[in-house]
Nucleic acid binder design. Structure first.
Lengths: 118, 118
DNA sequence: CTAACGTACAACCGAATGGTTGCACGTTCC
DNA sequence: GGAACGTGCAACCATTCGGTTGTACGTTAG
């Protein structure tokens, strides 16, 4: 039995929603790639206001993809891959559902009659 | 070298957005689990109007997670795990970014001399 | 101390979401 | 042919989203 560490549906909603934006995925990519950064440093990368980037970071933080660490007057933003793994595991579970379906189908196809198109 | 089958950012937006809803995830789960179903059959499962479910299916279809196959007066909805794999691969890439970051750090901590650039 | 910096937050705005109801149209069944 | 079914689509509504500007407040620098 796989320990299916199911996050509550609302958490999954937040997670996938956070990933459903190009800017936010870029932020996560940058952060996981090794560059911790203050919010302003991050904001400098994007063609939008500081407040907009701050909101994106807030969404990522609520989704658990990112953590903020106060350091003087700055807040250092750091990537957190833990929730990411939850999302990936869910997708893998769905893919396994599909393959399991096929293994059932294989049994059917193992019969002498060849598969026909439609 | 992994064939980095990069979907355009807009497609990824659609994909993750489609997954960011409990009802839609449930539909995908049900479909990948092996039960192809007409839209009305699907709709019967949920406590909302037929049109609402139909919209959810449309979102899933635009994201490529589902295909519809006309069959008489019904449209049979079938799961399509291909795009799902794209999403999973992206998450895995992000996770690998993180682990790569650590292995780099390990190298630094393991060696008295700083790592050289190549 | 004062000025500049980094951040948070509120108010506002247009567009998109997620839901509803109603209607039109093709298909199936008597 | 006509009624019932399955589907798609438009109109509408409240809420959320993604962006803006402005303001307040703690921290750092001169």
């Amino acid at each position: 039995m796989v320990a299916r560490s199911h996050l509550p549906p609302a958490a999954l909603d937040r997670l996938f929603h956070a990933l459903a934006d190009t800017t936010r995925r870029d932020i996560v990519t940058r952060l996981l790639g090794g560059h911790d950064a203050s919010v302003t440093t991050l904001a400098a990368r994007y063609d939008m206001s500081f407040a907009a980037v701050q909101k994106h970071v807030a969404v990522l933080e609520k989704a658990g993809l990112v953590t903020k660490h106060p350091q003087g007057r700055e807040r250092i933003v750091r990537g957190n891959p833990h929730q990411l793994a939850h999302a990936r595991q869910l997708l893998q579970q769905l893919e396994r559902l599909w393959t399991a379906r096929f293994s059932q189908l294989d049994a059917i196809l193992a019969e002498p009659s060849p598969p026909k198109k439609r």
